[in-house]
Design a protein around this nucleic acid. Sequence first.
DNA 1: TTGACATGCAACCATTAGACTGCATATTAT
DNA 2: ATAATATGCAGTCTAATGGTTGCATGTCAA
Lengths: 110, 110
Amino acid sequence: MDNIFRALADASRRQLLDELFKRNGQTLTELCEHLEMTRQSVTKHLSILEDAQLVVTEWQGRSKLHYLNTAPLGEIHDRWISKFDQHRVNILQLLKRKLEEEHNERHDND
Amino acid sequence: MDNIFRALADASRRQLLDELFKRNGQTLTELCEHLEMTRQSVTKHLSILEDAQLVVTEWQGRSKLHYLNTAPLGEIHDRWISKFDQHRVNILQLLKRKLEEEHNERHDND
DNA sequence: TTGACATGCAACCATTAGACTGCATATTAT
DNA sequence: ATAATATGCAGTCTAATGGTTGCATGTCAA
């Protein structure tokens, strides 16, 4: 879980996922074309994404193909987003209550 | 968006969100009781969560109450998770295709 | 077989992150 | 008024992060 969040924390890595979203199965050199950094830096980012299993690779001769794997994102959704979602309504109720309180206070001053 | 992902990248900060999930509106000192670090460190974490608007605060006398705000998580869901979700089926199809290929290759060798 | 291409590996460097200590300020209660 | 409580702010330290360069290895094509 920590790996996944850390992997997503960097904008370049999120961009890499975006590129794979646009076209899956790209090679390292292809992915490099979109980013303003050296190939070696991209390699590091990709390996972090691999550790988080957000990217899966397959060798094809001398080329390494990179594929997007969205399963970890599903995990984040299930164990984080959806869990907290029930609170979305709560914060709205809180805000509503506060507004009502302020409204009442204003009336008290009348 | 970057703020949100970076805020979520740290386990202590995710734990803080969890504590607020269990009981909303806790003070700084209350939140400190759950974490193995100094109050000042917790303050920094909370300010990062505030920057990401994952936590909203309200002063009450000398106490600062902290509230969970899940709206940014919704953003992550809408602009990241759900976007990539349509690919979940794709990777399964990819895997299926690969398995079929391997199966065929094995048959070719018969 | 040789040269070009695709990638890997290691060392290095600057910046940031996450922890700490120490002191300051503001509010509450006695 | 004074002491206790709740928080803020500034400076320091270490380790991790994100980038670099240089060289090595493996594969394809002429």
